[in-house]
Amino acid sequence: MQTPLHHRSWFAVLSTVIAVIAIWYLAALWLNGQQLIKTYERKNQSWQLTDIVQQAYAVKRPMLPPPHQVVQEWVKTVFQTKPSSKRSLVFHTIVTLQSTLLGFALGTVLGILIAVGIVHNRTLESSFMPWVIASQTIPILAIAPIIVVVLGAMSITGIFPKAVIAMYLSFFPVTIGMVKGLRSADRLHMELMQTYFASSSQLFWKVRWYSAQPYLFASLKIAIASALVGAIVAELPTGSQGGLGARLLSGSYYGQTVQIWSALLMASLLGASLVFCVSVLEKLMLRKRGYQA
């Protein structure tokens, strides 16, 4: 039973990818074709469908670049450009990765601390939780420039303001997951500890912390993806010279749609790899801790 199921899932993945690419090509033809037709009409030239199909996939600044153009640009800027160059996508990725990881680390620590506070203190829950939730209803695009300006006034510049914005997005899932996780401790385990007169810190380190681990890792996967979004958004108002956000911004200034799409491709590849890394870490940690998973 194992093998056919396995095959079927690969088939599903493959057919989805093929469908997405097919739709993408059709959409590119539709959008770029309209542009081409307008150009022909402005110049009062006659055109045929075959002309449009041929040219729609090779426009310099297309409305929607077809996949192969995006991949070509991606390969060029990743493998055929020196990583130290500002034209290299690797350079921008590393810049974004740094603030993502710093923000993720800060967000994880902050998220866990808030959760620990909430679980141990009912008053803190009712006074703090509304603010935690409110913080996430404010659009990050609105608050990002404020954070940059305020931290700038305190002469904090560079990677840190971007990391703070990444942290701002990533602490939330960690808090929510950890509150749930710390409270998920088995009632029997808690009562057992109670009969031995365990202190609340012993209860935390011997039971609650480990009970929360599966929830923590689920949250960390969301948090690292959020941190990446935060880091990219943070690069937009900071006028930074590096980073995938800066690459997106300069691409849109100059109408370099191919550049934008290849930066987006890079961002999604980066996000997927980061989540994958957390999953691997999760497997290793939980297995070490004796979970059967």
Partner: peptide, 28 residues
Amino acid sequence: RLYGYVFQAPALLPWRTIAKNCAVPMEI
């Protein structure tokens, strides 16, 4: 610390080995 309570279910901590589980009350 007069009590040793044995529940209906084993209530062992799944993230600890058997020896480490036995250590819990003594650690406390």
